[in-house]
Design a protein around this nucleic acid. Structure first.
Length: 352
DNA sequence: ATATACCGGGTTGTTACGTCA
DNA sequence: TCTGACGTAACAACCCGGTAT
């Protein structure tokens, strides 16, 4: 069996569909999200799924449903990933030292901020603002003292404005990069609720955090990129495990097929069905035939002379009802492993 | 057709941390 | 043990191209 895996672009909030180009005709569905317009997305802009318009949407996509996790026995999501992400997401908090620990650092920053103030003319407020240390003590009230450094405040929030400010700052625009712990936390909380912003919310957030709207916009862009990157990493690992499991399954089925063929040679009367119509039910370990599937699957009584009846306990079912492992793999409810979110995933299955 | 705004992908510069001699 | 150089990861900001309005 040849597997062609293609990792579709799926944002963390894109319905959690892992796209697999397996070409096996199982669990195929059309991507309805691809028809979702931008306006619809706008209406559901917060918390609603979106499909990256830049991603090439295959005409037919095989949705790798999260039910694979239990089916394949794959540990998901990796708790280490979650912890790592959380660590990473909170690393900035730790990096921002507590005021008591940053005497030397504060002194150094004072020098920088003096430069900033001199370069941007932001004044004493800006000079005192951009140090995260200054805001470590109080949560909301610090926001008024944050940001705006190096840009002279204001900032239209549009690209032209930011680019203009880049040039206006006389080369000091990239200083004071780190947002404060409180600002990051607030943005994270906002991101949990909605991964995209409309202008109104952007302005509100910027005002609340005393950041430029452009900063808020950039933060959300970067945050989405990080989420997607994490999800991609998770998906790759997941697909790798899926591939390994399916390979093993294929190996097992090939072996069983060989055994059945050998059995056929020994007892030809026993298997007067075409070999291609035989399938093995992995759950009950019985041979199933789909050659008479339409009739056998129907409630109508099966012919006593039918092979399936003669088999005694041999079940016949249409392919979509066949209790194959693939069907189980690709028909489970959405449970695709997700990249570590800011909040821990309580439904993480136990690792194998 | 043009302008504007937004977004994703990629890149750059800064910062903080860990390691090692 | 302390220190400075070095590598690395994370992050904020930017640039560019595409798309929608």
């Amino acid at each position: 069996m040849e597997l062609g895996l293609s990792l579709g672009e799926t944002m963390a909030d894109a319905g959690r569909d892992l796209v697999l180009g397996l070409g096996m005709g199982l669990g195929v569905r059309r991507d309805e999200e691809a028809e979702t317009g931008r306006e619809v997305r706008r209406e559901h802009e917060f918390g609603a799924g979106r499909c990256g318009r830049s991603s090439p949407e295959p005409a037919v996509r095989l949705t790798l449903l999260p039910g694979l996790v239990p089916s394949l026995g794959l540990p998901w999501p990796p708790s280490s990933e979650t912890s790592r992400h959380l660590e990473a997401s909170t690393r900035g908090f730790d990096v921002n030292r507590a005021p008591s620990l940053s005497v030397a650092g504060a002194a150094a920053e004072d020098e920088e901020e003096q430069d900033d103030a001199a370069g941007a003319g932001a004044g004493a407020a800006a000079a005192a603002s951009s140090s995260p240390n200054n805001s470590a003590g109080s949560f909301p009230t610090d926001f008024s003292a944050q940001g705006q450094a190096g840009t002279g405040g204001g900032g239209g929030g549009d690209r032209a404005g930011s680019r203009a400010s880049d040039e206006d700052d006389g080369g000091s625009a990239r200083k004071k990069l780190r947002l404060s712990k409180e600002q990051s936390a607030f943005l994270e909380e906002s991101f949990k609720e909605h991964a995209t912003l409309n202008p109104k919310q952007k302005l509100a957030l910027a005002k609340q955090l005393n950041l430029r709207p452009r900063q808020v916009e950039v933060w959300f862009q970067n945050r989405r990129a990080r989420t997607k990157l994490k999800q991609t990493e998770v998906d790759c690992e997941y697909l790798k495990r899926c591939c390994e499991t399916l390979t093993e399954e294929n190996r097992r089925l090939q072996k069983e097929l060989a055994e059945l063929r050998a059995l056929k040679t020994v007892h030809p009367f026993y298997m007067h069905l075409p070999a291609t119509t035989l399938s093995m039910c992995p759950s009950c370990e019985r041979v199933a035939s789909n050659s008479s599937a339409p009739a056998a699957a129907a409630p109508a009584p099966a012919s006593s002379s039918s092979p399936s009846a003669a088999g005694g306990g041999i079940a016949a079912a249409p392919p979509e009802q066949r209790p194959s492992s693939f069907a189980a793999l690709f028909s489970s409810p959405l449970n695709r492993p997700q990249a570590a979110q800011p909040q821990p995933q309580p439904q993480a299955p136990a690792s194998s």
